[in-house]
Amino acid sequence: MTRAPLRTVRPQDLAAVYTQPSVQLTRLVRQGRVRRAAPGIYYALPDDRDAAWLPTLEALAAGAATALYGERVPVLMHLTAARLLGALPRAIAQAVVAVPGRHRDLPVLDRPAGVIRFVTRDVDALDATLVRTDLGPVLATGPEQTVLDLTKRPGLGGLPDECRSAVRTLLPRCAPERLDELARAQRMVGTLRRLRTEHPDSEDVVG
């Protein structure tokens, strides 16, 4: 498990190692060396962390999505990317991940509340960069992509005020030409137009 991407696996991923992976994972959970991230998904604690340590929700979501879809496939997006970019000062109880296929939302099992939300996207078309998390590196959208996504779907996750605040914080870091380029390539010209209407004071950024 420590060699798996983001130290996160499903029982079937260990079939070549254990004859009864679920039994072995249950034993490791009891020993405090492994935790359940979500139904059917487990992660190994880093060697230098004690049993009370918890990864960030962003890291846990990245690990769970990677276990489901493969390394460097999922992309952290929307408010989750805004959080990683420093545009969302407080932690929230949900993480949003772009994946190439439909998947139901998953409850987080290693803390009292939390949910991983999956959004079907063409992940290869997203403007994303590799960022570090508590469990390892993962792709996350950059400022321009994040601003467009937040503007297009402010209701995703039920936190529209946080979305608008994150957009205001990120806009000074956005390149106008990159916003135009992404909007055209991803059929989000209407979204960019709404962004310009909602943030007229940022005319030097959004054009």
Results as ranks from 00 to 15, higher is better:
121 R>F: 02
11 P>A: 14
23 V>D: 12
14 L>V: 07
18 Y>N: 11
184 R>W: 08
185 A>W: 00
29 V>L: 07
120 T>C: 11
189 V>Y: 03
78 H>W: 14
1 M>E: 14
135 L>G: 09
206 V>P: 10
137 P>F: 06
106 L>T: 07
139 L>M: 11
127 D>V: 01
173 R>V: 00
50 D>W: 07
147 V>N: 06
97 V>P: 11
18 Y>P: 02
38 A>K: 03
83 R>C: 07
97 V>I: 12
178 R>P: 05
57 L>W: 13
170 L>K: 04
28 L>R: 13
135 L>W: 10
95 A>K: 03
69 Y>S: 04
52 A>Q: 13
149 D>V: 01
84 L>Q: 12
30 R>V: 06
5 P>T: 11
90 R>H: 13
182 L>M: 10
173 R>W: 04
92 I>T: 08
183 A>I: 08
80 T>H: 09
26 T>S: 15
127 D>M: 00
155 G>Y: 01
155 G>W: 04
56 T>P: 05
166 A>G: 01
64 A>D: 09
46 P>Y: 00
78 H>C: 07
91 A>C: 07
74 P>I: 01
83 R>Y: 10
160 P>N: 08
188 M>H: 06
5 P>Q: 03
203 E>Y: 15
114 G>V: 10
47 D>F: 11
49 R>W: 05
157 G>L: 01
158 G>I: 10
171 L>W: 06
2 T>D: 15
79 L>P: 04
164 R>Q: 09
124 D>R: 15
175 A>C: 00
79 L>T: 11
60 L>A: 14
4 A>F: 13
14 L>F: 11
207 G>L: 12
71 E>A: 13
204 D>E: 15
77 M>R: 12
9 V>F: 05
142 G>Y: 01
85 L>N: 06
174 C>W: 08
76 L>N: 09
179 L>N: 03
106 L>E: 14
32 G>I: 03
101 G>L: 11
184 R>V: 15
63 G>L: 11
92 I>W: 02
